[in-house]
Nucleic acid binder design. Structure first.
Lengths: 215, 215
DNA sequence: CGAATTATTATACGCTTGAATAATTTTCGT
DNA sequence: ACGAAAATTATTCAAGCGTATAATAATTCG
């Protein structure tokens, strides 16, 4: 049997490849199935190389978790930032980004599900989770406060907190529903449900779901 | 070394003990740490006995998943049924039951997190998930339709669907938030947020979060 | 161009896992 | 009371795990 051919890559490139292979394996086989050997095969290297780039498998998985979470949050925040319009438009872009691919996506949920169980067990996972949660929640609260001000309101701190908790929860829950059972929802249905629900929660007139006999 | 003392239990009792031990281990150590040996130790038996009650470890974990999910759904439905009042009261009881212990609870979330990653990988998990989801969603949709009728509305099928998706998402998301970071919320805060948000989504007057300068 | 260094492969090790089997104790029908 | 059947323990096994180490190929640099 001949020896496997060498392919030498730059450090950042190889680290990225290894993280990508880790995510592939977790999405496809679950955390249990994401073994060092499986990940190495997927990355096209031999197992020993992993230890050359990461002190342990755990550290590599932590890096993969960090990247996944930051990617999701960044996608939503970028969508809000690049929506150059009024505060309402920015908030809506943020919500839509969270409830459409690639954030709402079966693969993303598989990754998240594989990771979330570690949050309470591994302090590193706990720290990554907490930081990401705070970034997300802060972004949402800012968008919300801007929107309320734009409507001419002077929201109290209590209202901002309560409404951002509620909107955050709504986004999270719809994200799970949509990612777990994507086939049960039209492509834009969840985003539309979220937008209407959020604006109803904030006291705006609803957009088209009135029934025939309101009273 | 002397032999371990025998303790003979009835079949249903022992199966229940093994499932309970499985859940304990998953909650405490994660799915990875819930090994046959660890579970057996927790249950106070030796490993071989597990195979006497379950054809494989997988089947035992599936039984544990089934029990956990059915328990959560049943708790909420029972709360709604035993609230002998108008439709609004029943819907509120359903929501509150979902967002207070033992449904909203760090341990319950740990269990759910341990399981959810299997839903897409193991068809048995997929079937359990789907069945439970449909039961939950049907119960919610019935409660919602009753409530809307009680308000004098004649809700369209589309509205019922959209609103129940939204409420389901809100419950799920707040459940996760509350279970992941119970220390960040007052004991009844999430339930209150949910109740106010749901009624706002349905077009009812809000209950006390108006700010100082509406309009 | 050659030596030192680094990246990569290949192999080996100790441990844990789920499962299978054998041995032992209890229960129960007759 | 006894023997068959069932429940439980104890032991064993093969496979797979993460990791460590040794061998080899590529790169770097004086």
């Amino acid at each position: 049997m001949s020896r496997r051919a060498f392919h030498r890559a730059s450090e950042t490139e190889r680290r990225q490849d290894l993280i990508a292979a880790t995510l592939d394996c977790i999405a496809e086989f679950g955390v249990q199935g994401a073994t060092v050997r499986q990940i190495a095969t997927r990355a096209g290297v031999t197992g020993g190389l992993i230890r050359h780039y990461f002190a342990s498998k755990d550290q590599m998985v932590q890096a993969a978790y960090r990247e996944t979470m930051m990617g999701m949050t960044k996608a939503a925040i970028d969508a809000a930032d690049s929506a150059r319009g009024d505060a309402r438009t920015r908030l809506r872009s943020f919500i839509v980004a969270n409830l459409t691919p690639p954030v709402t996506d079966p693969r993303t949920l598989s990754l998240w599900a594989g990771f979330i169980g570690h949050v309470r067990l591994d302090p590193v996972f706990g720290a990554i989770h907490k930081e990401n949660y705070l970034v997300f929640r802060q972004a949402l609260e800012t968008l919300l406060a801007d929107f309320l001000k734009e409507m001419g309101r002077v929201p109290s701190a209590a209202e901002c907190r309560a409404q951002s908790i509620a909107i955050n929860g709504l986004i999270d829950g719809l994200w799970i529903e949509g990612s777990l059972a994507a086939d049960m929802f039209d492509e834009t249905e969840l985003a539309q449900v979220a937008l209407r629900s959020v604006e109803a929660m904030l006291g705006l007139p609803t957009g088209g779901l009135e029934d025939t006999n309101k009273g």
